[in-house]
Simulated assay, not measured.
Amino acid sequence: MSVTWSEDVDAILGGDLTCGLACLTQAGGAVVTTVSPIGLRDRERGTVGFTTSLGFGRKLERIKDNPRVALAYHAREHGVGDGDDPRFVLVHGEARFDPHPDRATLDEIGKSSEPYLGAQRSGRFWDRWLHSYYEDRVLVTVTATRVVAWPSATAEGEPEVFGAPLPDSAAAPQSPPKKGTGPRVDAVRTGDRASRLPHVLLAYRDADRYPVIVPAGVRSAGAAGVRLRVPSFVPPGGRRAGLLAHSYGAQLVGLESRQNTGWLEVTDTGALYAPHTESGFRAPANKTILLLANGFLARRGLAKARKQGRVQALG
């Protein structure tokens, strides 16, 4: 049976300009990044969606390896819905995609994106420059198994659950990695960068083997790691986890994203995050320059993915 959620939750799913996506890793951790849902959802069928590009990142490869994903609707600004609604909404589900969408699907993606991202640039130059960015778009559809809506942006309070109930028990601690659990990149830098950005998300694998995304905040940072503020239900013990800090402007102009994978240790005294890898970018707060950069990165990323055989491996 499909999962059906309330009308007010549907307004959030249809209004947010961006949301967090968590995919599981082969090592049992989770990676969290941002995607554009552009209002894609079907309440009757119990599906939500987002778009991505064949030339950006490895989201699709991770989804093919393990289709269990989580989407966190956590940021209301610059969307088309009620910007004052504080709720944190988490969707768990099974993702699927067609790496070679037909013309009708691409046209529908373009039409759906306009209220959120503005009209697509067109013309002799833009059609050529943004070909990889627009024409190699992929629609990812997630069939929901559970939708959870907390009453606050911090995911505290009694949640409203649609679909499968939340796991009865907390996820067990994971075995530490062979290289140790301590920071492998500069934890102070990680904490400083994350504390400057308005949205911080933490992701890990839950007891039912779905990734979970929770809102987080930076308390402090030192050589031992980044001390985080996390919801009270985050399980105790150590586990692999992904961290994302980001900001964005209207139509996704002026993006900044700081992404980490690492080790999370939760005790009675708080949550300590040790970053192991880091990546990130800052995009210019100018749409024309942003589109030029997007076109370049999509073309380069797609060429690299094809050369490495990663596009062909998607099917």
Rank of each mutant, 00 (worst) to 15 (best):
P115R: 11
G163V: 08
L117E: 10
V69T: 00
T145R: 00
G118R: 12
R87F: 12
V161C: 11
A75W: 04
T145P: 00
V80M: 08
R103G: 05
E158T: 15
T141F: 04
D85M: 11
F88E: 01
P99F: 12
E160P: 08
G79E: 05
T154I: 06
S113K: 08
R62P: 04
Y73R: 03
A153M: 07
A149L: 09
D84K: 14
H74I: 03
A153H: 12
V161M: 11
N66T: 07
Y116T: 13
P67G: 01
S113N: 10
A104T: 12
Y116I: 13
E61A: 10
P159Q: 12
A144Y: 06
H74C: 09
Y133W: 13
A70R: 00
R103N: 10
D136L: 13
G157P: 10
A149M: 12
A95N: 03
H100V: 04
N66S: 05
D82I: 14
E108D: 14
A95M: 07
R137G: 09
H92R: 03
A70H: 01
E61S: 08
R137P: 00
P101Q: 03
P101W: 02
G123T: 04
D98M: 05
R68K: 14
H131I: 02
L130S: 13
R87V: 11
E77T: 15
L60E: 01
F97V: 07
T154V: 11
Q120H: 11
E94A: 07
A149C: 14
E61L: 09
R121V: 05
N66F: 02
K64M: 07
S122L: 06
R68S: 04
F162T: 11
V80D: 02
G157V: 10
L106F: 08
V148C: 07
D65M: 08
R76M: 09
S132E: 14
P101K: 04
V147A: 01
V69C: 00
D82T: 13
G118Q: 07
P101Y: 03
S122P: 06
G157S: 09
